[in-house]
Amino acid sequence: MRPRKRRSKNKLVAQVEAARAERSVEVWAMDEHRVGLKPILRRTWARRGERPQVAVRPRYEWLYVYAFVCPETGESEFWLAPSVNSAMFCEITAAFLRSREQAVLLVLDQAGWHMSAETLALEADGVLAFEHLPPYSPELMPAERLWELTDERLANRVFERLADLEAVLGETCVSLTDQPARIQSRTLYHWWPGGADHTSTE
């Protein structure tokens, strides 16, 4: 595939501002995250002098979180899916777009399924445009900061079935969509459109 020329972030912000003068445009970021029956281990509290213990029972069944976030407003949308590939990405992104009234500029990393011909075809109707981040730069992706929140209730736990994990994860994602201020404080980088007008509180 012929590589696409990337625009600098300053030019991206200028492009969005120019587009907003003619049409309402939202700038979202999107990423995927894998969770499963292999336990997520985090630090835990223990009494002084006692070694903390966490049960583990690793199995290799997976579930994927597809997360869309608008850092400027803190709005978010989560989808749970059994796999990650071009077809699944296109299906979920198309469903996400149907819920938006404004045009969307979607910031993505350069995962293969984000660069496929099927994916790039989503731009054809002008409702959606993609901006791909430089390779190997997860620190630039606002959606990366959502995973600490989605994993909160999964960490240091053993789930008997993937369906049990999915139920807990689904409840967590629904709860997060009702916390825009918390999402905004984690994802609105200073260089993001609108970021200079806000100060992180978390």
Rank of each mutant, 00 (worst) to 15 (best):
P39E: 02
L128H: 00
L41Q: 05
P134N: 12
A129K: 14
E61V: 15
E72Y: 06
H33C: 15
A95N: 11
S86P: 01
C70E: 15
A46K: 12
L80T: 01
R100M: 09
G112T: 11
E26H: 07
L133G: 08
A117S: 14
V104D: 00
W113Y: 15
D109R: 05
E32I: 01
W28D: 00
T44D: 09
E75M: 05
R51F: 07
P135L: 07
P135I: 03
V27H: 02
V65Y: 00
I40S: 00
P134C: 15
P71V: 09
Q110L: 02
R51V: 15
A124K: 15
G112N: 05
S99Q: 11
L108C: 13
R34A: 08
V54R: 07
L122K: 09
W113T: 06
A124C: 08
E26M: 05
S99T: 15
R98E: 10
C70N: 14
W113M: 06
A129F: 12
S83A: 14
D109C: 04
E131R: 12
H114L: 06
M30Q: 14
H114P: 11
L37R: 09
V65I: 11
H114G: 11
A29G: 07
E123N: 09
A29P: 09
V107P: 13
E75T: 00
F130V: 00
L41W: 08
P135Q: 08
R51T: 15
Y66I: 02
V54L: 08
S86K: 07
P52W: 10
R57S: 07
F130W: 08
A124L: 15
A46G: 12
W113V: 05
I40V: 05
R57K: 13
V65D: 03
A94H: 14
S83R: 15
V107M: 09
V25P: 06
E91D: 14
A111G: 15
A95Q: 10
K38F: 13
F78Y: 13
V65P: 03
P71T: 06
A46D: 10
E61G: 08
T73I: 01
A111P: 08
A46Q: 12
E61Y: 10
V104A: 01
L105R: 03
F78L: 02
L106R: 04
E75V: 00
W45M: 09
R57Q: 12
A87K: 14
L120A: 09
G126C: 03
V84S: 01
C90R: 13
A129E: 14
V84Q: 05
R51K: 15
W79Q: 07
L133K: 04
V54W: 13
V54M: 08
L128I: 04
T93K: 03
L120E: 10
F89C: 02
E75P: 00
E26I: 03
L133A: 11
K38P: 03
E50P: 03
W28I: 10
T119L: 12
V54I: 13
Y64W: 14
E26W: 05
P135A: 13
Q102L: 06
S76F: 05
V25A: 06
L41N: 08
G74D: 02
W113Q: 09
W28H: 03
G74T: 05
A87L: 09
V84E: 05
W28Q: 02
R98T: 12
S99D: 03
P71Y: 13
L133F: 06
I92W: 01
R42D: 10
